[in-house]
C-alpha cells in the first residue's frame, strides 16, 4: 500500500462523513452555537442533525448543554479540545493525501 492510500485509510471516519464534517468545521470557528443555528446553516432536518451530533458527542468531539433562553429551551453546542485537535489532524492528513 503506498503512502497516500495509507494516509487516506487513516482518516478519522467520525469526521470524514460529510454531514459531520460540516458540523465540526462550523463549530471549529466559534466558541459555541445553538441547535437552531446549525439547523439553519447546514440545511439538515432535525433528526439527521441530532443523529450526527449524538455520534460526535459519543466520540467526545462535541459538548452538548441544555439550557433556557428566557422560557425557550435552547441546546448549546461546543467543539471539545479533542474535537478541535481531531479536525486539525484530519485536515492535515487530507492535505497530505491529496
Amino acid at each position: 500500500m503506498n503512502q497516500q492510500v495509507r494516509t487516506i485509510s487513516e482518516l478519522d471516519r467520525v469526521i470524514h462523513e460529510p454531514g459531520r464534517l460540516i458540523i465540526v468545521t462550523l463549530l471549529y470557528a466559534v466558541e459555541r452555537v445553538d441547535f437552531l443555528y446549525l439547523l439553519h446553516e447546514t440545511g439538515m432536518n432535525k433528526g439527521t442533525l441530532s443523529s450526527h451530533l449524538s455520534r460526535l458527542e459519543e466520540a467526545g468531539y462535541v459538548e452538548i448543554a441544555k439550557t433556557f433562553r428566557g422560557k425557550v429551551p435552547q441546546t448549546l453546542l461546543r467543539l471539545s479540545p479533542s474535537g478541535r485537535k481531531a479536525l486539525e489532524r484530519y485536515r492535515r492528513k487530507l492535505k497530505e493525501a491529496l
Binding site: 466558541e31 452555537v33 445553538d34 437552531l36 439553519h40 425557550v72 435552547q74
Partner: peptide, 15 residues
Amino acid sequence: QRITYSRTGFVEYRK
C-alpha cells in the same frame, strides 16, 4: 436577542 437568535440561531464568537 429579540430577532436574530430566535429566527436563525445563536452564535458566540471566540475572543
